[in-house]
């Protein structure tokens, strides 16, 4: 439960201690080294014809691009649903709905994503859209929960003072509560993004492509180079996404907190 409120504070603290600049570039450097190293190895390795066909630049970059699309689109949909829903549920009038909605969102995350994927594929057919729906169901909880928590953790005295100054409920939400909740909401977005990078590897089972294609093909055809390429690129992508989300968190969080 508490794990959904992941903050980047620990990483930033570490950054301060070990000389910020080195720490700041560490993750992208590792991701770049992994990607370049993997691609260089693939180009120089002695591959058979199946491996060669599966590891052309077009295939690998195509799968990578599909993966990025899956992650970005599903996270955008989750933000579009989760943040407004979280705002609604954080209002006093909706406090009775909070628990049931969180239970459902929790269930979405508890159900193994492969289960949702396959069920959706059975009912609605395969494809990119189905994969996005499954990813959304899976990644909704962190953003929903963090939006609610982010709004609830705003000091009640700040809201009391703002009301006492004559700000309306809407103005308080816009000028006070939401800006103060931004860091927590963004932490939720970051968690959702990273979850989605991992879960999107399963999209291959609904014919939605992504790096899961390489992993699955590597396993089925028993070809290590294909499998390893898929895995390494997934890891590198997760690292990059986490880094970008961390930078965004820092840039978008209001000053003075």
């Amino acid at each position: 439960m508490t794990a959904t409120v992941v903050s980047s504070a620990g990483v930033e603290e570490l950054g301060k201690e070990t000389g910020g600049r080195t720490a700041f570039w560490l993750l992208p450097a590792i991701a770049a080294a992994l990607t370049i190293g993997q691609l260089a190895w693939v180009r120089t390795a002695d591959l058979d014809s199946i491996e060669e066909r599966s590891l052309t630049n077009d295939v690998v970059l195509g799968n990578l691009w599909e993966h990025v699309q899956l992650v970005v689109i599903s996270t955008a949909v989750v933000v579009a649903i989760g943040v407004p829903l979280g705002i609604l549920l954080s209002r006093r009038a909706a406090r009775h709905l909070r628990a049931p909605v969180l239970v459902v969102a929790n269930a979405g995350q508890a159900i193994p994503s492969i289960g949702i994927l396959v069920l959706l594929a059975l009912i609605f057919g395969v494809g990119f859209k189905m994969a996005v729906i499954a990813l959304v169901a899976y990644a909704l909880l962190p953003i929903l929960r963090n939006t609610i928590i982010g709004l609830q953790q705003v000091d009640e005295f700040i809201i009391d003072a703002a009301r006492g100054m004559g700000l309306s409920r809407g103005e308080i939400l816009r000028r006070v509560e939401l800006p103060l909740a931004v860091p927590v909401i963004l932490a939720g977005v970051r968690v959702s993004l990273i979850l989605n990078v991992g879960v999107a590897t399963l999209a291959t089972y609904t014919n939605a492509g992504g790096l899961g294609d390489l992993i699955e093909r590597g396993i089925v055809l028993n070809r290590m180079p294909i499998l390893v390429t898929g895995c390494v690129l997934t890891i590198a992508l997760a690292l990059m996404v986490d880094w970008v989300a961390g930078v965004a968190e820092k840039l978008l969080s209001p000053k003075g907190l």
């Binding site: 000091d155 005295f157 700040i158 809201i159 009391d160 003072a161 703002a162 009301r163 006492g164 100054m165 004559g166 000028r175 006070v176 800006p179 103060l180 209001p254 000053k255 003075g256 907190l257």
Partner: peptide, 18 residues
């Protein structure tokens, strides 16, 4: 509207941090 014309100060101050 009423509150905008009445000053209000509380113990915890409640300045808006950002």
């Amino acid at each position: 509207e009423l509150r905008r014309h009445i000053g209000y100060v509380i113990q915890q101050v409640g300045l808006i941090p950002h």
